[in-house]
Amino acid sequence: MAHIDYYFGTPSPWSYLAGNRLEEIAGRHGATITYKPVDLLQLFDRTGGVRPANRHPSRMEYRAQELQRWSRHLGMTLNPKPAFWPVNPAPSSYAIIAAQEAGGGNLPGLVQGFLRAVWAEDADIADDAVIREKLAAAGFDPDLADKGLFVGAETFGRNLEQAVEAGVFGAPFYVVRETGERFWGQDRLDFLDRHLASL
């Protein structure tokens, strides 16, 4: 059985546009997933990337066009200028880490809930009330927002180190543990699907 390490950022529009396709692919091939939220700005700094605020305007203009193209192609609502972006990814990431540790709820639904909150709902995923609401909606104890802080912070930092070691430099990023094959971007999910089918 294959295992996928899924690196993503909770404010990432490309992670949002991945929707639930990773989970559908994993389900078809009996693969398991570990969700590894990371601080993308620090990841860019560590791996030669450029933070969005420092990118040339032509790159940001093209990015905006691509986001609109992909959102239309996938039939997903996307606000090109969300009310809360950029946003501190740590609180929502801690909640995901705590929920993954606790189990018992819909973890993919929680991850997608935070991403949808930024890009389709104009909600602040650094706000405690929003975090609690998303936890509850995904079947988790809302108090995980408080209970998981220490472990969440520790794991969040470790995820960044593991991402750098695994060759991750953006999001969404999928690493198949058994083969070391890496797939960057929601537009590479078809290739991940084919790779898993070949195992």
Rank of each mutant, 00 (worst) to 15 (best):
Lys36Ser: 00
Val151Thr: 15
Pro172Ala: 13
Leu78Asp: 01
Ala53His: 03
Leu199Asn: 03
Glu178Thr: 04
Pro108Gly: 12
Arg194Cys: 06
Arg182Glu: 07
Met60Ala: 07
Arg132Val: 02
Glu101Pro: 00
Glu165Ile: 07
Pro37Asp: 11
Arg194Ser: 07
Leu144Lys: 07
Gly170Leu: 11
Phe8Asn: 04
Ala2Trp: 06
Ile33Leu: 00
Ala102Arg: 10
Arg177Lys: 15
Phe169Ala: 10
Gln42Ser: 11
Ala129Thr: 14
Ile25Thr: 05
Ile125Trp: 09
Asn20Gln: 10
Val176His: 12
Glu165Thr: 12
Gly139His: 00
Glu121Arg: 15
Ala138Glu: 14
Ala123Asn: 13
Val50Ser: 06
Asn106Phe: 01
Tyr35Val: 07
Ile131Asn: 00
Gly170Ala: 15
Ser12Met: 09
Ala153Met: 12
Trp70Ser: 08
Val176Ala: 12
Leu115Gly: 02
Asn79Lys: 11
Glu181Phe: 06
Gln42Asn: 10
Arg158Asp: 08
Val50Lys: 11
Gly152Arg: 05
Ile131Ala: 11
Ser198Pro: 02
Asp187Gln: 12
Leu149Thr: 13
Lys134Phe: 10
Asp39Pro: 01
Ile125Ala: 14
Asp124Tyr: 07
Leu67Lys: 02
Gln68Gly: 10
Asp190Arg: 14
Met60Arg: 10
Pro82Ile: 13
Gly180Thr: 13
Gly27His: 01
Ala163Phe: 03
Gln186Phe: 02
Arg28His: 14
Trp85Gly: 01
Phe8Gln: 04
Arg194Asp: 11
Pro80Ser: 01
Gly113Tyr: 00
Leu199Gln: 08
Gln112Ala: 04
Gly148Thr: 11
Gly49Ala: 05
Val87Thr: 08
Gly148Tyr: 14
Gly167Asp: 01
Pro57Thr: 03
Arg59Trp: 04
Gly104Asp: 09
